[in-house]
Design a protein around this nucleic acid. Structure first.
Lengths: 250, 250
DNA sequence: CGACACTTTGAAGACGATCAACGCCGGTGG
DNA sequence: CCACCGGCGTTGATCGTCTTCAAAGTGTCG
């Protein structure tokens, strides 16, 4: 396969499950690696959309400045995520609606936009794309809901559980992978609020000292979050945490 | 074509643009009409997902009850919209996450879920589905943003503009198509807040008397909303209103 | 007419944002 | 080596917005 250095990431991407190896490699061979230094932009709000990306290493902050000067973080994309699925396929897909900035040394695999619109002749792959978009849409729907139904402390608890699960971290003790300011922005709250909210989590069995997170009683958290989760068979942000076992998502 | 009674709706759906007539009719022939009386459920939260729907007439409220008893309205689907796109294609697609209730006498076209997963052999149609999902995703993303960046009165203004545009209403004078309680729920606010917010809209050139809405100065509204819109080339909720011309979306 | 859902209004409360100040680093430059 | 700076994080006091609770007005439909 091409891009052997990133075979771990690429092999585990659901985007390619069921796609014959030869076909997958043919698809991958149309991309090329691109490295970004910390702080470098992959693209800017308003740029014409030209590419589809797979994040191979590092992470990117999707961000936009509002006219009043506030900065909004719409997402944080780390290894294994894709960028541009929906933007490219939209009916009105000319320009990026966010900027993408490397939070650390980051490597992405870049494909021309056309690569994505030409997938009709790859039936399995195109169903995978559909599934990936649908999953993402579900995430965004849940997040929209949470922003009106949950308090800051509930959203934060969800986010921490999610982080822990997605990054395969030990729920008994792990380090925050991003700065507090960034997480606050991602959750749509002010750093001050974030800071104060951390304190209130202790009542619910989550202890945060400096940048170290400890889930003291996973069952308690489970209950705490699921109280506000009425989605059949899953917690908000799709996290089901049983005991101390982390469940792989995405 | 089959379902001639609804040819207006079906012909104007972007889902079928570019699809050869014969192919479209073949696709449509796999569906059947279903009528719902006011208040009747199309499906319930937790039901297994079996079908994809196109709304031909009337409207449906997508809703879910939270464990604490609050009722959440995630969407209102009127004629021309589809239901189930993402749920069916998701990787974990067993059960409905919302209930769908008819708000009035409503007619839908029902297709078996398999119909949607078998679209690979209809290249144009499957790209249309991708585009439809992507467009929807963009909507939801924007809405998630708006819930943290905009005030109730801004979100309401956006919603009214959106309603006016989507339903081809006269911005100089139109009737609210839904009850105020329902709209409040759709916007994630309490009826009391909604009622109070209506008053504040007058300062921004939107007059609401009883159920009659009047945009007194479309330019003013445009500016009011776009102040909070930093998305290149479009307003929140994708509405661009020039003068008194309504622009068709979706 | 009376039941009931919808809508409005008022007063009090909760939550998060804002403004301001301070401690804590890590880096830069004299 | 130390002084200074800027970004980050925390804490306190205050403010604005939306929710909550309560009550009353409006409408429709039997």
């Amino acid at each position: 396969m091409p891009f052997r250095a990133y075979s771990d990431i690429l092999n585990n991407m659901r985007l390619f499950t069921g796609v014959p190896v030869k076909e997958r490699d043919a698809l991958l061979s149309q991309g090329h690696l691109k490295h970004l230094h910390t702080g470098e932009m992959l693209f800017n709000h308003g740029d014409p959309i030209k590419s589809f990306y797979i994040v191979c290493g590092g992470s990117l902050q999707m961000t936009r400045e509002l006219p009043d000067g506030r900065h909004l973080t719409t997402d944080i994309s780390s290894a294994g995520r894709t960028i541009g699925k929906t933007s490219i396929l939209e009916r009105c897909h000319k320009f990026h609606r966010v900027s993408a900035r490397a939070l650390e040394e980051t490597t992405v695999l870049e494909f021309p936009a056309k690569w994505l619109s030409d997938i009709s002749n790859h039936p399995v792959f195109s169903l995978n794309i559909l599934a990936a978009i649908s999953d993402y849409t579900k995430d965004v729907e849940l997040e929209a809901e949470q922003r009106t139904t949950m308090t800051a402390s509930q959203r934060l608890a969800c986010f921490l559980l999610r982080i822990c699960t997605l990054h395969h971290l030990d729920p008994r003790r792990f380090e925050l992978p991003y700065s507090k300011t960034l997480i606050a922005s991602r959750l749509g709250m002010k750093p001050e609020t974030f800071s104060r909210t951390l304190a209130t989590l202790e009542e619910h069995g989550i202890r945060v000292a400096n940048t170290t997170v400890t889930f003291e009683n996973v069952d308690l958290i489970q209950q705490f979050i699921c109280e506000h989760c009425s989605v059949i068979g899953e917690c908000p942000s799709h996290i089901t945490l049983t005991g101390l076992t982390t469940v792989t998502l995405l």
